[in-house]
Each structure stands twice: as structure tokens, then as C-alpha cells.
Amino acid sequence: MPVAIQAGLWGLLSGSALLLGALVGWYARLPQRLIAAIMAFGAGVLISALSFELMDEAWKQGGFLPVAGGFLSGATIYTAANWVLAHRGARHRKRSGASGKRDQQAAEHPNNGLALALGALLDGIPESIVIGVSLIQGGAVGVVAVIAVFLSNLPEGLSSAAGLKQEGKSAAYNFGLWTGIALISGAAAAIGYVAFAGVDPGVVAFVQAVAAGAILAMIVDTMVPEASEGTHDFAGLISVSGFLVAFALSKLG
């Protein structure tokens, strides 16, 4: 099987966690605290993955300048795009709505469907590209990266679906959104491999650092608020647990 197709399938697998989470969030009435705890765990997993699977590997390939430039660029690009979408109704896209912030968002932006969809893409595409790029080295996927993205996508789909349901969005809209994002995640992973296979290692390092910067900005801007609000004093401990699990998988793998 061509490596690009493998990359696409791995990206689709990690993206499918969005749909799985959406199914649970739509049909099961999970406590707000549990949703927030899953979000905190996923944040810890992603922080570990971007530290050891992205930044460390990028440093080995390109050194300080590509890594620093890419990291800051990724965070800046994500922050600018997220600011635009936040002012169009996608600020609380990862919240499940118990705090009332989703209600306020829906009242201010009743036609925010496109902003929510673009926000989900903004969050997911850097993660998917990372999966594709990970196959460039030796043709083997970064398993920890796939697991980290899968575990972080699960609470995103769960929390967002619960919030969409509270806003009055239809089931067709909800599942159509997450199915589309999962498919685009697979395509982004394939593109990540095709676009950067054979290019200079410094360029690959820069791309990895861009993704890492975007992911870290996403964690702080969208995942941490939901996690902290729902779990209060336990958010840090749960996030540390997620970090440890991903760190162990990275080293044992």
C-alpha cells in the first residue's frame, strides 16, 4: 500500500475519535465534570506528544532556528485565526455548555455553524499533518502521535456535541460536521506526507515546529478553559496523568 494512503488512513483513524466522541456526547448524558476530566487528560497527552514527538524530533533534524521560528509562527497563525473565528461564534466550541457560555455564544451568533466547522478544522489539521510527516522518517507512523491525537479528539467531539445539542443543532448537522472533519483529517495526513517527503530536513523540522506551536496554542486557548472550569483543583493532576501516559508510550515504544 502506498505510504501516502497509509498516512491518510492513520489520519482518518485519529480523526474518527471526533465522531466517536460526538456519538457519546449526543446520546449519553455525561456529567460535566467527567467531560472536563477527559478534556484535561487529553490536554496532557497532547502536551507530551508535542514535546517529545514534535519538538524533540524537530530539534534533532533542524536545530534551534527552524524550531524556534516554526514554533512561534504556528502559535501566531493559530492565535490570529482563532481570534477571527472567536468573534464569529466559535469561541466556546469545545465547551459542553453547562456554564451557560454556549448559550450566550448562540444568542450572539445564531448562525455560527460555519465558524464552528472552521474552528474544528483549525484545531485538527495541524495534528493530522503531524501524522503524515511522521511517516517520512523510515516509513513507519509515529504511533504515539496517532494515539495522542486520537485521545485528544475524543473529548473534543464529546464536549462539542453536547454543546451543539444544547444549542438546538440537529443530529444530522452534528454527525455530518464530525464525519466531514474526520475525512478531512485523513486527507490532511496524506497531504502532510506527500508535500514534505524528500524535502530538506530543516523544512520538515520547521513544519513540525509550526504544528507544535499551533497545537500548544490550541490547548491553552480551547481545551484548558473547559478542563479547569469543570474539574477545578484537579485539572492539573489529571493533565499530568495524561502527560505521563503519553510519555511512557513514547519511551517504551
Rank of each mutant, 00 (worst) to 15 (best):
M1I: 06
V3R: 03
A4W: 01
L9H: 00
L9S: 02
L9R: 01
G15L: 01
A17D: 05
L20V: 13
G21E: 09
A22L: 10
Y27W: 14
L30M: 11
P31M: 12
Q32M: 12
Q32P: 10
I38D: 09
I38T: 12
M39W: 02
M39F: 03
L46M: 15
L46D: 00
S48T: 08
L54D: 09
L54S: 11
M55Y: 11
M55A: 13
D56R: 13
G62W: 14
V67C: 13
A68Y: 05
L72N: 06
T76P: 03
A80H: 08
V84K: 09
R88K: 14
A98P: 03
R102G: 07
Q104V: 14
A107E: 14
G113F: 13
A115H: 11
L116M: 15
L122I: 13
D123E: 12
P126Y: 02
E127P: 02
S128I: 12
G132E: 02
S134N: 07
V144H: 02
A145C: 03
I147Q: 04
A148V: 03
V149F: 03
V149L: 06
F150I: 07
L151N: 01
L154H: 04
L158G: 03
S159E: 04
A161K: 05
G168Y: 06
S170M: 11
A172M: 10
Y173N: 07
F175R: 05
G176A: 04
G176D: 02
L177C: 07
I181K: 05
I184T: 08
S185C: 04
A187F: 02
A189C: 06
F196E: 11
V199W: 07
D200F: 08
P201C: 08
V204L: 14
A205P: 14
V210R: 10
I215Y: 02
I215L: 12
T222F: 10
E226D: 09
D233S: 14
D233T: 08
A235S: 13
I238D: 02
S241Y: 01
S241V: 07
A248P: 04
L252C: 06
